[in-house]
Design a protein around this nucleic acid. Structure first.
Lengths: 356, 356
DNA sequence: CGAGCCGCCCGAATCGATTCGAGCGGCCGC
DNA sequence: GCGGCCGCTCGAATCGATTCGGGCGGCTCG
C-alpha cells in the first residue's frame, strides 16, 4: 500500500477498463453517469489524487507551464523592481492560459536540475538586458519551444521581441541635461558582455558588446554628448553604481577630483545605478543636484533613496503583459509581432543647471 | 521532418540501440568512448536537443521543480515585499537541488492549467498568512508530495512549519505603546478566513477564523490591551489598511471621531496596512505620531511612505531559506523539523506618547 | 421482424526515455 | 588451449495516462 494508486488501480476497483476510467475523469468522452459515479467512488476509496501530471503531459505534449528565464540568479532578480514589474505583467498576460510560471535560473551554472535546456515548458519568455540571450535563443530554437523576448536585441523573425525606445529615451534625458547647460557628462552603463566586465568603457569593450540595451542607451547619450566617458557596472545595483561613479568622480586613491576634471552630470542606465551614483557623490561631499546632476532609467522608486530621481519612466508592466499575450498567441498557432513601447522623461529633483 | 527527432531516431542513425543511446547521453553507464562519440555526432546531425523532460520525469519520477504556492493572485504576491523576500530565501535554500521554482496560482480559481492539484512538482512550499492552507495541505498530502509550510499554522507532523513569534512579537509592540502611556488602542488585522471578510471583528468572526497568523498577532495585542477593538482588512495592502483605519477613526459619514472616542494608537498586522493607517490618519487631519501612534509588522520599507515606521522586524529571507533547506532534507528522505524565528522591535518615528 | 443506428465501453497502441538483466565477444590467466 | 571474467551493448519491461478504432447490445424505424 505504499505505492500511490494509479488510474489502472482505480479502473480495476470500479470494474471498468483504464480507458473508461480516464474518460470518466477528463469528463469529455461518452460515459454513462452510473459508470462515472462508480469510477469516482473507487477513486475516493483508494485515495487516488487524480492523473499524474507527468504522464499526462508526456501524452498530451503540453505541460501547462510557461518558463521565464531571468538570466541571472533568481534571488538578484527578485531584488530588481523592474524585473518584478515585468513578471507581474507576464503573469497577467498569460492569465487566459491558466498556466503557471516557472522561474528558470540563468544557464551556465552547475545546476543539476531544471534549466532552459531541460525544463518541461510549453513556451518561454526571456527577460533580457542580458548578454546571454543569444545562447538561450539557440537552445530554445533547437528544442522547438515558442519563445518571446523582452529587450532581447535582434532575435530573428520567429521570436517576437518586446522592447522600448532605449536610444531615443536616453537621448531625451541627455537633451534635458544639455538644455540645463551641462557639457561634461559621464555615463554609468549596464553590463556589456557575458563576463559582466566592469570599469572604464573603451573601444575594445564596445566592440565585443553583446547586450543590445546597454549599447542603445549609450548611443542615445552619445547622440548628445559624443565624448562622454562611460564606466560599466557589473550588475544593476546600487552598490555597483556607487563603484562605477567613483571612477568618474574620484582619483585612484579615492579623493574627489577637482571640479574641472569631473563631470557635472551623470547619466545612469538604471535607477538602481543612479541611486548608487547619488550615494557615491554624497560620500565624496558633492551635493545633488547642486554639484552633480543625475539621470536614471526605469521609473521605479528606489528603496531608501531620499530624492525624486529624474529618470526615464518605462512601462515595465505593460512590456510584461505584451510578452504574455504574445506567448498566448504563439501557442494558439497565430503569429505574434515584435512591439516597442516608449518611455517618458520624468523630471525630479536630481537635475539642475551646473555650478560652473 | 516536421516532427522533432527522438532518442530512438538518434540511436537508429548512430547504429545503436535506444538503450545505449540513452546511456551515452546520461553519461553514467558503461559505454565505450567511440560509441558515445558516434551517438553524440548523430544527435548533432539530427538537431536532437536532448531527452524530452516530460518523458524523463515520468520515468524518473522526479521533475526537478519545486512549487511555491502563493495562495493568491501571482501579481499581488509580487507587490508584497515580504513575499518577495521569502521567495528570495527559498531560491537560496533549494540552490543545492538546482531545481527551478514554479509559481503556483492560488487555487479555487477557474484556472485551466497547472495548480496545486495538478502540477509536476517534487515538493511544495506553502507561503502562508493565508486562510487556504488547510485545503492545500489536504490536496498535497493526498498526492504524497513533500511539503513545507511558512506560517501555515497547525500542519501536522509530516509538514514542517517555518514561523515566527507572532504573538510574543506583537505583545512587545503593544507593551511599547503601553509604556508610552497609551490605553485606547485599536488593531487592524489581516484576513481571518477564506472569504477575506473585512470590517469590525466580532466574536463570530474570531470563532470561525482559519488564519493562524492573524489570530496569534491579535492575541499578542490583546495580551496587553484586552479590550482593543479590531478591524479586519481584506488583503495586506495600503488601500485596505486605509479603509480599515477609517472604521476606527471616523464615523459612518466619514467625519473624524472626537478624540475621546477614537484610539490614540493603532497596531497594524503588516507594514503595508500600517502605511494605510497613516494615510487614513493624515486624510482625516490627524498627525502621526502626535495624535495617532502606529505600529506595523514586517520590517519592510514601504514604497512612498515618508515615515520611519515603528514595526516588528521579521527575518523574511531567513524564513524562506529555512523552508528551502527543509525541502532539500525532505527530498533526501531525512526528517525536517518545524522552526520558529524571532522578530525584533524597531522603534521609528511613528510612535510617541498620547496627546491626552 | 429485421436492419440500422446509436450509445457506451474495451483493447491496444502511443508518448519518449530509463533501467535492469541477459548475452556476446574478447582477453587473460592457468 | 580452454574456462572464466570483464566490458560493452541490446531487448524488453516500465513509468501512467490518453486516444482512436472497433465491437457489442439495445432501441428505433421501416
Amino acid at each position: 500500500m505504499t505505492a500511490r494508486p494509479t488510474l489502472a488501480d482505480v479502473a480495476a476497483r470500479a470494474g471498468v477498463s483504464a480507458s473508461t476510467a480516464s474518460l470518466a475523469f477528463s469528463g469529455s468522452g461518452p460515459v454513462s453517469d452510473a459508470t462515472k459515479e462508480r469510477v469516482l467512488a473507487a477513486a475516493a476509496e483508494l485515495g487516488y489524487a487524480g492523473p499524474d501530471p507527468r504522464a499526462r503531459s508526456l501524452r498530451r505534449g503540453r505541460s501547462g507551464i510557461v518558463g521565464v528565464v531571468l538570466e541571472e540568479r533568481v534571488r538578484s532578480a527578485f531584488l530588481d523592481p523592474v524585473k518584478i514589474r515585468t513578471l507581474d505583467g507576464i503573469a497577467d498576460g498569460i492569465a487566459p492560459l491558466g498556466a503557471a510560471l516557472l522561474l528558470l535560473p540563468f544557464i551556465g551554472g552547475e545546476s543539476e536540475g531544471a534549466t532552459i535546456e531541460d525544463a518541461p515548458v510549453d513556451a518561454v519568455v526571456l527577460i533580457g538586458c542580458s548578454p546571454r540571450v543569444g545562447h538561450s535563443l539557440e537552445i530554445l530554437r533547437r528544442r522547438g519551444i515558442p519563445t518571446v523576448a523582452i529587450e532581447g536585441g535582434p532575435t530573428g523573425d520567429d521570436v517576437p521581441d518586446i522592447s522600448i525606445d532605449n536610444r531615443d529615451a536616453t537621448r531625451r534625458g541627455a537633451e534635458h541635461l544639455a538644455e540645463l547647460g551641462h557639457r561634461d557628462v559621464g555615463v554609468v552603463t549596464l553590463a556589456f558582455d557575458a563576463e559582466r566586465t566592469s570599469g572604464p568603457v573603451d573601444a575594445a569593450l564596445e566592440a565585443r558588446a553583446t547586450t543590445q540595451v546597454t549599447i542603445e542607451r549609450l548611443q542615445g547619450a552619445r547622440d548628445v554628448f559624443p565624448e562622454a566617458p562611460a564606466v560599466a557596472a557589473a550588475t544593476s545595483s546600487v552598490e555597483d553604481g556607487r563603484l562605477a561613479a567613483r571612477l568618474l568622480l574620484a582619483d585612484a586613491s579615492g579623493r574627489v577630483l577637482p571640479a574641472e576634471r569631473r563631470p557635472t552630470a551623470i547619466i545612469a542606465q538604471s535607477d538602481l545605478l543612479a541611486a548608487g551614483v547619488i550615494l557615491a557623490a554624497e560620500e565624496l561631499g558633492l551635493t545633488v543636484p547642486g554639484e552633480l546632476s543625475v539621470v536614471g532609467f526605469d521609473g521605479i522608486r528606489v528603496d531608501g533613496l531620499r530624492h525624486d530621481l529624474t529618470t526615464l519612466d518605462q512601462p515595465s508592466t505593460d512590456k510584461g503583459r505584451a510578452a504574455g499575450e504574445a506567448v498566448v498567441r504563439l501557442l494558439a498557432g497565430e503569429p505574434a509581432a515584435s512591439l516597442a513601447f516608449t518611455s517618458t522623461l520624468h523630471i525630479g529633483d536630481t537635475t539642475a543647471p551646473p555650478a560652473r
